[in-house]
Design a protein around this nucleic acid. Structure first.
Length: 474
RNA sequence: GGCCCGUUCGUCUAUCGGUUAGGACACCAGGUUUUCAACCUGGGAAGAGGGGUUCAACUCCCCUACGGGCUGCCA
């Protein structure tokens, strides 16, 4: 009974996303969070959030809020309240002192000047040796009354081996790793210590993060070992690069997840694209979030950095829009309009848009495109014709429209009923259907690029159609 | 400098020793169409280079080149 429960507890997957609140949610961070979320949620595990705010200079509540907003937009929900790493600093210090008591750490009284001098001297000799503290083996009787840091007593021989789910077995020679500082002289923890203590205390079983941390994993392992704590599963994923293959930076444009929202990419499209960026399951390209949850696995993560490709992002978003539920899409559109400072839709407009969604969603890749296609439904009389539409509404066309209007007045408003009427009107005028559709479009939407004329007529209804045609044919 | 990671069409990738190296995006050419978009058909397009191991290597090993990361009392 007990062992059964233990087994179940042990198999419960716990992941955490641990951003530093120093800015918006970076696109790369968004993908990492997505991987965590997919992995945990796809296996009935937990997805926790920890805000790594130990750097008091750079951490802001505003950044934390922005990160939470970004995650929420991406549709990634987390369990419980976000944990503040800074709030746990006493616990970190406690562990550092436990390491001291266990002899796996020691007090180091070397000042930063001493260390700088050590490095300068090594460099002068042409070597790049890691810092070796003279206090590593000192007896406490010799301790001066000076501020000290607590350093890890790292093994100097042999190697530290990391088993990584993405990178495989990675070996580090211990003489390449220094006695890292765990507790600073002001008593605050370093990142190395804080991460390990928090992950352990939070019961984190799987750590997925950028491969810029791969080297750190060796240091983390030393702390786990020093405390006799069980190791988590590590998966170090390659960073996302810009379209030019260089590390993503400001000159690449959009870095923040919220910028993608503002550009009008649907969240489902972002999820699909980001999941597929650097991860693959055979030839699967377009999939729902539910399918992603079922398919996602650490084994499918690639080892080379992936480049951002906006064309593919757009294509993926187009598919996701077409797949989306009409009402849900309308809601997301409204959220998009709100964050980009557009005025809200009236009740009439949103009703109309909901009805029009079926003919809009598979023609748009982004919300601005959707809005553009929806112009005919959102605008109201008098319809303002753009230049192209004005050209289409020449005298002859207006005449044709005029007689068409008469026939539409009492027509049944279904496509089956409308089709013969429009076809007859074209035939009567001795023109092809295309020549009729063009002025019709102009009259109905004031534009020459619109959804199908039937769809527009069906959506706005008979009265509005007749009224718009009357306006235009006068 | 040292250590670590990476390298398949332009891009994302499949392949887990034996394939005409597949798919998607993008691109090009046709087609369809009621404009835009979409859609359909076809096309070009790849294993960084060099050594091994093996009957057989994109796949395993080594070297080189290139790219990236770490080398902080930042995270």
């Amino acid at each position: 009974m007990v062992s059964q429960r233990l087994t179940r507890m042990a198999s419960q997957i716990v992941t955490r996303f641990a951003p530093s609140p120093t800015g918006y949610l970076h696109i790369g961070g968004g993908r990492t969070a997505l991987f965590y979320w997919l992995y945990a949620r796809g296996r009935g595990g937990k997805f926790l959030l920890r805000i790594e705010d130990t750097d008091r200079e750079r951490s802001t509540p505003k950044a934390t809020a922005a990160i939470l907003r970004g995650l929420t937009w991406l549709g990634l929900d987390w369990d419980g309240e976000p944990v503040s790493q800074f709030a746990r600093k006493d616990r970190h210090a406690e562990v550092a002192h436990q390491m001291l008591a266990r002899g796996t750490a020691y007090k180091c009284f070397s000042s930063q000047e001493d260390i700088a001098a050590f490095r300068a001297e090594a460099e002068a000799r042409g070597s790049y040796a890691v810092f070796q503290s003279p206090w590593r083996d000192a007896v406490s009787a010799s301790y001066p009354d000076l501020p000290y840091v607590i350093r890890m007593r790292a093994p100097r021989n042999g190697e530290t081996v990391i088993e990584d789910r993405v990178q495989g077995t990675v070996r580090f020679r211990n003489d390449q790793l220094d006695d890292m500082i765990c507790l600073r002289s002001d008593g605050t923890p370093t990142y190395m210590l804080a991460v390990v203590v928090d992950d352990h205390d939070m019961g984190v079983t799987h750590v997925i993060r950028g491969d810029d941390h791969l080297n750190n994993a060796a240091r983390h392992k030393m702390i786990y070992d020093a405390m006799d704590w069980p190791l988590p599963v590590w998966a170090h994923i390659p960073l996302i690069h810009g379209p030019d293959g260089k590390k993503l930076s400001k000159r690449h444009g959009a870095l923040g997840v919220e910028e993608y929202q503002a550009m009008g990419y649907p969240a489902a499209g972002m999820r699909n694209y980001l999941t597929r960026l650097g991860w693959a399951h055979l030839d699967e390209e377009i999939f729902s979030t539910g399918q992603a949850l079922r398919m996602f696995d650490l084994d499918g993560i690639g080892r080379a950095p992936a480049r951002l490709d906006f064309k593919k992002l757009e294509n993926t978003c187009g598919h996701q829009m077409a797949m989306a539920d009409d009402a849900a899409l309308l809601h997301e559109l409204q959220a998009f309009m709100a964050v980009t400072g557009r005025s809200a839709l009236s009740a009439t407009q949103s009703d109309l848009l909901l009805e029009a969604m079926y003919c809009l969603k598979d023609r748009a890749k982004t919300f601005p495109e959707l809005l553009d296609k929806a112009h005919f439904a959102l605008t109201s009389r008098p319809i303002v014709a753009d230049t192209g539409a004005q050209v289409a509404l020449d005298t002859v066309s207006r005449g044709i429209l005029q007689s068409l209007t008469l026939q539409l007045q009492n027509a049944q408003w279904t496509k089956t009923d409308l089709e013969p009427i429009l076809n007859a009107a074209a035939a009567e005028a001795g023109i092809g259907f295309g020549k009729l559709a063009q002025p019709l479009r102009a009259a109905l939407a004031g534009r020459t690029a619109t959804p199908s004329v039937y769809d527009m007529m069906l959506v706005i209804g008979r009265d509005e159609t007749v009224a718009r045609l009357r306006d235009a044919s006068q």
